[in-house]
């Protein structure tokens, strides 16, 4: 079975408004952050209420391919041969 997930980038200032029971990620510790720490990503099957009700405004909403492409940009990736 293949499930289609939605990938979303949010601002770190909205972290307190995230209901982890509505997204795939379990807690703050497992979230992927941008290199500058200002943004983070989540994914979900059904739109979470905190987005649907407008309390959190996503920076970007993507499908999987778009998300993978974004994660390879300088803002999210880097040189791992340190």
């Amino acid at each position: 079975m293949t499930m289609t997930l939605t990938y979303t980038i949010l601002n770190i200032s909205d972290i307190e408004k995230i209901n982890f029971s509505e997204i795939i990620e379990n807690n703050f510790g497992t979230l992927r952050h941008s290199n500058d720490g200002q943004e983070f990503g989540i994914k979900y099957e059904s739109e979470p209420s905190f987005i649907a009700n407008g309390s959190v405004l996503p920076i970007k909403i993507m499908d999987k391919n778009q998300a993978i492409e974004l994660m390879q940009t300088e803002k999210w990736s880097g040189n791992l041969e340190k």
């Binding site: 952050h33 791992l80 340190k82």
Partner: peptide
């Protein structure tokens, strides 16, 4: 996936 410094590197 894994982390080097403060950067995450996940694989598909």
């Amino acid at each position: 996936g894994g982390q080097v410094g403060s950067t995450f590197y996940f694989w598909e």
